[in-house]
Design a protein around this nucleic acid. Structure first.
Length: 782
DNA sequence: AAATTTCTAGTTTTT
DNA sequence: CTAGAAATTT
């Protein structure tokens, strides 16, 4: 009986799960679930699928569930398998890219792709672009490969082909030409980049009516997670596949779950606007999930209060049944080193208090900030784990091995060819490659085919390489996947190369690990033995059936780059950027580096809507915490080899004071009569104890009430250790100054020493400027 | 082809 | 400052 499915849901969740997928006339109805942080979003999504199936309203094969990350897809799969008695393998649950890959494999002919097409990851794409520019003799100073890569990706994310782009601007038009050339190159080589997976499958559905109809009729129930992160192309794809394009009579029921307040990927093309578009075009039922099961009251209040500063929200307020809990603690340090030292102290306290290390997260806005924290954790002997960085399938040695494997599948993949033609070195230098590229250009064929046609010494070496690859392909024809991987690692000479290298031990291990990964892949995906019998019979219309295990493994390697340096099992403190913390939760969370310029980041302040995205980022960070939340900032920080003095983040000003507890005294200051928000000055005193007897409350502390004028900090009775480097400057951050030409302004940063010393000043009339202190005539205003 | 020096650009990230 | 790329030397 399906009622136990719903037994543990609150009324909102229950309403969402049981929304009718169609009305009494049999027309489909869609839904938009606004799911706040920690409101049980994944649970609603999976229960919805289970409910549809168990009530007989949907068969497993009529369900399509889309997520953004493999992790989310896997989690949904596991949870579903636990609820449903059926085999979930036949269901289409996966990432946009994974599902599109599946679609394109099944219909590669109609999509205009070879059956062996390979997927380029971001690195591969960049090297393909570099190669393209070189071949076309394009000045890569004027057209930086990175910029072209961005241009292409963004065009594709908006559904634009090169032919759709003509601006009249010569530079833009040239970029579009290069985009066209890039697409031609990819087509020739039989490779697709990430955005192409989506665009190509969109076009497949668009141009092939029978295929489109087939999938439209099959997928009667489409569910989408993290809807706020969709880009224009993904939205169009959804609209087409669900049959909402052009008002088709029997559209599918779409169930979208998202949180506009957690949209933090606009910088890579995500568009929250899709939520409003969806509302207007799909006319969905709307349900808000505002009950939070994660955080204590004070933490939620802080989050709600902060995010209320954003305009253009769909509007939502989280509430909890848990008590207020601890106040949110704020700490001001004199330097980044001091901040890290305080973190260590506080963490030790938490651990002594019984919180396990893996339940403590240290968050920062940018990766560069992790270094000093890591250093201090290391010195203190506290185990930690840093998220982000190189993942397994992105490591150079692994990519080399994969390149050989890809050549077995698809010899026309010039990116892979270039990567390993001379690695390990076999006497094929830059000159030979150039000759080869010319030959390939002339014959309009791949480097691989051109290699056999080349004469002379270079030709001999290249011929050797081609024969090596051909030999490996022949020899492994009847091998299992792990055997093939092992054979290639051995016979390509990769293992020998790294064995003879001084620091190659780790790389050798990673290559060995690749064989294990292949073994695990076979076991998990059920390739080889009786997996086919186990899957649903209706799967043969599309899916993994006609893919060779090697092709599937290569796609898997591109689409799922694997874990970051997972020190799994170890109980370690978690370090990561705020972005990568999305979707996670911890008992105790520290948000560090809350300074103007860092968080919000200086680059985003000038972007349109940049500040609101930064604020959402802060909202995401805050809502990761279950019981304890700490916010810290410092007066000075080493950045790019220079000491910088930043003001406290404006976000600190936007928090409700009743929920806060200052571990260091704070001083209130006069504000601008208008203009930018924030702009308080903080007293520079600080207590080394994090003992609560030293705690100062925002409004009530004696230090806060005592007026302290700008320059008094220099001559003050404040503890000396507070601001060691400050006396170097005749001014300080936060001070108001007068300039003969620019008028009144406030110092927002100081940097450089002696003759180099300069101040960043926010002038009332003339905006933000950097002025050399040795030149500019500045007078302090009392 | 490997080793060394010089230069340069430094948000956020998944697929 | 400092990682990674590019240029240059050996």
């Amino acid at each position: 009986m399906y009622s136990d499915l719903l037994a543990n849901l609150n009324p909102e969740q229950c309403e969402a799960v049981t929304l009718p997928p169609s009305d009494e006339k049999g027309r489909s109805r869609s839904a938009l679930i606004l799911a706040g942080a920690g409101s049980g979003k994944t649970r609603v999504l999976t229960t919805r699928i289970a409910w549809l199936i168990q009530t007989g309203q949907a068969s497993p094969i009529s369900v399509l569930a889309v997520t953004f990350t493999n992790k989310a897809a896997k989690e949904m799969m596991i949870r579903l398998a636990a609820i449903l008695p059926i085999n979930t393998r036949g269901m289409w649950i996966g990432t946009f890219h994974g599902l599109c890959n599946r679609l394109l494999r099944a219909h590669h002919r109609d999509a205009g792709l070879p059956s062996t097409f390979q997927i380029l990851d971001t690195q591969d794409q960049l090297s393909a672009i570099k190669r393209l520019l070189k071949g076309l003799k394009v000045d890569d100073e004027k057209y930086p490969p990175k910029q072209l890569q961005y241009f292409i990706a963004h065009a594709k994310e908006r559904g634009m082909r090169a032919k759709d782009l003509h601006s009249g601007d010569a530079f833009q038009d040239r970029l579009a030409e290069l985009y066209a050339a890039y697409d031609e190159q990819c087509q020739r080589e039989g490779v697709v980049d990430f955005a192409e997976l989506l665009l190509r499958s969109y076009e497949l559905l668009q141009h092939h009516e029978p295929i489109r109809t087939h999938y439209q009729e099959r997928f009667r129930h489409i569910l989408i997670d993290e809807f706020q992160d969709t880009n224009a192309l993904q939205y169009a794809w959804l609209k087409l596949l669900s049959g909402h394009e052009g008002g088709r009579a029997s559209a599918s029921s779409v169930f979208a779950v998202g949180d506009d307040d957690q949209s933090i990927y606009a910088f890579r093309g995500a568009d929250v606007e899709n939520m409003r578009l969806y509302e207007n075009q799909f006319h969905p039922f709307m349900v808000k999930l505002e009950q939070n099961y994660r955080s204590h009251g004070n933490i939620l209040d802080v989050a709600n209060h902060l995010i209320a500063n954003n305009t253009a929200r769909l509007g939502k307020n989280l509430r909890t049944d848990a008590g207020h809990g601890e106040p949110v603690r704020i700490y001001e340090a004199a330097s980044d080193g001091m901040e890290a030292a305080w973190l260590i102290d506080e963490i030790k306290g938490l651990i002594n208090g019984g919180i396990s290390r893996s339940e403590i997260a240290l968050l920062y806005r940018s990766n560069a900030q992790s270094r000093i924290i890591e250093h201090n954790l290391f010195s203190a002997g506290l185990p930690y784990r840093v998220y982000g960085g190189l993942r397994f399938f992105e490591r150079a040695e692994v990519k080399h091995a994969l390149a050989y494997l890809r050549l077995l599948e698809n010899p026309n993949d010039d990116t892979s060819f270039s990567r390993v033609v001379n690695f390990p070195t076999r006497g094929i230098g830059a000159r030979s490659i150039e000759a080869l590229q010319d030959a390939a250009q002339l014959q309009q064929c791949s480097l691989y085919s051109a290699a056999s046609s080349l004469e002379g010494k270079a030709g001999a070496a290249l011929g050797g390489f081609v024969r090596l690859v051909d030999h490996m392909r022949e020899a492994t024809r009847h091998n299992t996947l792990p055997e093939t991987v092992e054979f290639v690692i051995q016979h390509s000479g990769l293992i020998q190369h790294y064995l003879s290298e001084r620091e190659g031990q780790d790389r050798v291990e990673n290559l060995q690990e690749l064989i294990n990964a292949a073994t695990a892949f076979i076991a998990e995906e059920g390739f080889g033995q009786n997996a086919k019998a186990a899957s649903l019979p209706s799967e043969n219309d599309a899916g993994t059936l006609e893919m060779s295990p090697l092709a599937a493994f290569l796609a898997h390697a591109s689409l799922e780059a694997g874990d970051n340096q997972a020190q799994a099992g170890q109980d370690a403190i978690q370090l990561m950027t705020v972005h990568s913390a999305k979707g996670l939760e911890f008992t105790a969370v520290f948000i560090t580096g809350l300074e103007e310029g860092l968080f919000p980041h200086e680059n985003s302040v000038n972007e349109s809507n940049g500040l609101e995205e930064e604020r959402r980022l802060m909202y995401v960070a805050i809502t990761r915490a279950k019981e304890r939340l700490y916010l810290s900032h410092t007066q000075s920080r080493m950045l790019h080899g220079q000491v910088r003095y930043n003001m406290p983040s404006r976000f600190l000003e936007e928090l409700p004071t009743a929920c806060l507890k200052w571990l260091t005294p704070k001083m209130k200051d006069a504000r601008w009569g208008g203009g930018r928000s924030g702009g308080s000055t903080w007293k520079s005193g600080y207590s080394h104890d994090s003992d609560d007897s030293q705690v100062f409350d925002y409004e009530d502390s004696p230090a806060a009430r005592k007026p302290r004028l700008a320059h008094s900090a220099l001559s003050s009775n404040i503890p000396r250790m507070a601001a060691p480097a400050r006396d170097i400057y005749p001014f300080r951050v936060g001070q108001d100054v007068f300039h003969t030409k620019f008028g009144e302004g406030r110092i927002t940063a100081l940097e450089g020493l002696e003759a180099d010393a300069r101040a960043q000043i926010n002038f009332k009339r003339h905006g933000v400027k950097w002025l050399q202190l040795s030149i500019a005539k500045l007078a302090a205003i009392d």
